[in-house]
Write a protein that binds this DNA or RNA. Structure first.
Lengths: 182, 182
DNA sequence: CGTCTATTTGAATGTACTCAAAAGCGGTGG
DNA sequence: CCACCGCTTTTGAGTACATTCAAATAGACG
C-alpha cells in the first residue's frame, strides 16, 4: 500500500484496526454461490482460487491469489448481489477481511484510501484485459510461459490441474507442454 | 440511465448540458496510443472499436460499441495515464463526450451519478469476466453463436474480419463457421 | 502398506491456422 | 455503361496445436 499512498502512523493504525483476521483451512470456502458477500480479503499467508461452476458442472477458475493479493467474489462484493463464485482455499490461509461498510467509512474519513482502491481496481481491470487478449490470441504454451514469468510464486506451489484450468487447457496438455519445455 | 436511477427534470438538464456533442467519420480516431484521454463517449449513433496493436503490428480488438454503449480507452481515462489503445470509428458516428473533471464534479453535486457509474463499471467488469471464460473454454463456433445472440445489432453491420478479430479467430475460420451454420 | 489423487504417456480425433488462390462487390473514371 | 481497382469473403490443401479417452505411473497421506 505504501507504494501508492503515504499514511501517517495514526492512519495506518486506524486502517489496521478495522481489518479482521480470518483463518481458513485448505478446501474450505470463503464464499459459495448464493452467499451474501460482505468482505474482500487480503492474503497474508496462503493461496486461494475463485471459480465459477457452469450448468454442466465444469469448473472455470477466475482468479488465483497468493500473499499480498486481494480476493473475493468482487462482482457480488461491489454490487451487493449474491455470490456466483466459489472462493476456496488451496492451502491453509491467514487473511485480513475488509467489509464493504468499513470501506465506505474509510473513504469518507481518509480520502486517500479512495485513491488507493481506485488504483487497485484499475490494475485489476487492466490485468483482466490482458488476460482476455492472451486467452484469445496465444497458444497454451505461450500462456504457460507468460504465467511462469508473471507468477513464479504461484507456479511452483499450485497443482498442475489447477494451473491448467486457469490457463484454459487440459491437465494432460499442460503436462506435455512442461515436458517439451524442459 | 433511467433504468438505474431517477433524475429530476432539472438534474437531467444539468447532465445533458455538461455533455459535449462530437461527430467523427469512419476510419477516424477518438484516441491513439500516447494521447491524453480526458473523456469517455456515449454512442448516440454509429459504431466503433477499441484495439491494441502489439509489437508485431497485430491488431487485437478489445471492445466493439454501438448505440447506447460507452467507449474510450478506459484504463487511460480512469488512471490518467497515456492511451495504449486506438479507438476508431467503424461507421460515421455521433457521440456525447463526458470529461473526467465533469464527472468528478457531477459526483459531488449529484451523488446519484456515483451510483449509476458504479453500476456501469460493475457491469463492464462482469462482461470482461465472462469474455475471459468464453475465450478460454469455448470453441470459435460457440463464441460466434454467443456473439450473435448477445449482440445481433453488431453482427449484422460489422465486417467479417472485425468480428473474427474480436472473437480471436481468423476471418477464414469465421467464414467456414458461418457456412457450416447455414 | 494400501488407497486415493495427481501426473504422465499414447493413439486417434477435432479444431483452427497458414498460405495461396479464386470469387464477390463497391466505387471510380474513362 | 463498362472496365478496372481495391478490399472483403470464400474455398482448398496441408499442418500445428490441443482434445478425448484410456491406461500406466508417481506421489501423498493415513
Amino acid at each position: 500500500m505504501s507504494e501508492h499512498i503515504h499514511l501517517s502512523k495514526q492512519e495506518e493504525e486506524e486502517f489496521i484496526s478495522v481489518l479482521s483476521e480470518k483463518k481458513i483451512n485448505k478446501k474450505q470456502f470463503l464464499t459459495r454461490p448464493g452467499d451474501k458477500v460482505d468482505a474482500e480479503y487480503y492474503v497474508v499467508k496462503g493461496c486461494l482460487q475463485s471459480y465459477y461452476q457452469d450448468e454442466a458442472g465444469n469448473k472455470h477458475i477466475i482468479q488465483l491469489a497468493v500473499e499480498d493479493w486481494w480476493i473475493s467474489d468482487f462482482e457480488a462484493f461491489f454490487s451487493g448481489k449474491k455470490a456466483e463464485l466459489y472462493v476456496e482455499a488451496i492451502e491453509d490461509c491467514l487473511l485480513l477481511g475488509l467489509e464493504r461498510q468499513t470501506l465506505e467509512m474509510l473513504y469518507k474519513r481518509i480520502p486517500k484510501f479512495e485513491r488507493f482502491f481506485r488504483i487497485k481496481t484499475t490494475k485489476a481491470f487492466v490485468s483482466l484485459r490482458s488476460r482476455i487478449l492472451s486467452a484469445l490470441q496465444k497458444t497454451g504454451k505461450q500462456r504457460y510461459l507468460d504465467f511462469c514469468k508473471d507468477y513464479p510464486q504461484i507456479e511452483s506451489r499450485v497443482p498442475n490441474y489447477i494451473i491448467a484450468n486457469y490457463l484454459g487447457i487440459k491437465a494432460e496438455s499442460l503436462s506435455r507442454i512442461r515436458k517439451e519445455i524442459s
